[in-house]
Design a protein around this nucleic acid. Structure first.
Lengths: 143, 143
DNA sequence: TGATTTTGTTATCAAATGATAAGTAATGGG
DNA sequence: CCCATTACTTATCATTTGATAACAAAATCA
């Protein structure tokens, strides 16, 4: 297989990933937040504590807009801002108790759908999947 | 590795896929269309000919909004609508010449970045990647 | 110390997107 | 033929998101 063919295979693959991700995550999030706010919360969940700049960089949202959305999340009591004692310009952000509860529910919903998707996989299949994830993560979807 | 750990590995993996996809595709699209319009064009490109209902279903956009966006694409001469001779309610949609040119350019841009990403991969790496893509596509990200 | 950079905020505006109601035209089933 | 359904359209409105300018405070650097 030449590199061009690999490219097309990869395009088709990423399309599948996006489709399945959508399938697993749709309606998993609370109605009280917008899609962008959810993606910010998701990022905070897996990377906390993070700064506003981290969110802005990683989610590709401008600083003013990041500030606005984070403020809204803060007003909804889903996150907490903690000032850095070293550098007082910085603010570390992490989930509040309420935020944790909300994200736990969302993740539980997604996970149950995920488990459902792999319920028919054999032990060998699961091992294959795990190996494949590792290979792609290190060789193709690396940072 | 238990299924729960596999779930988290998978979450982390899909996050990487989304990040890399964004990296490869950013600014690849023409400025004359919106992100949603681009995703519609992308879908048409790989699945043409498609009906409005197909687009609506697969892209998760309501029919009225799909109709509006497709109309805009049509006004920009990027697509063509062809009435079905069997069922005159249906319209098959495909890229116009201009639309093909635009999508070829966009895909070329994405592909060059992709090739750049795998330029240091050995022959064995590429084979590993291909196998891994196949495994995940059939065992995890299947329809 | 004074200038510059970094980190974040506020305000404002335009554009993109989502949601809904109401409608047309063609099809198909009884 | 009549009625329900399907495929799509038009119009309208609210919300979300993106972009920009102008600002403040703290840190860093020369």
């Amino acid at each position: 297989m030449d590199k061009k063919a690999l490219f097309f295979k990869c395009v088709s693959f990423t399309t599948s990933v996006h489709r399945v991700t959508h399938e697993l995550t749709q309606n998993a999030k609370s109605d009280s937040i917008t899609p962008v706010q959810y993606s910010i919360l998701e990022y905070i969940t897996v990377s906390q504590p993070v700064t506003l700049s981290d969110i802005s960089d990683c989610q590709h949202i401008s600083m003013p807009n990041t500030s606005r959305e984070v403020k809204k999340l803060s007003e909804k009591n889903l996150i907490e801002k903690i000032s850095d004692t070293e550098d007082r310009r910085k603010q570390y952000i992490r989930l509040s108790k309420d935020g944790e509860i909300m994200m736990n529910e969302a993740f539980a919903c997604v996970e149950s759908r995920f488990q459902n998707r792999i319920q028919n996989a054999s032990k060998e299949d699961l091992e294959d999947i795990e190996r494949a994830l590792d290979i792609l993560q290190t060789k193709l979807f690396y940072k």
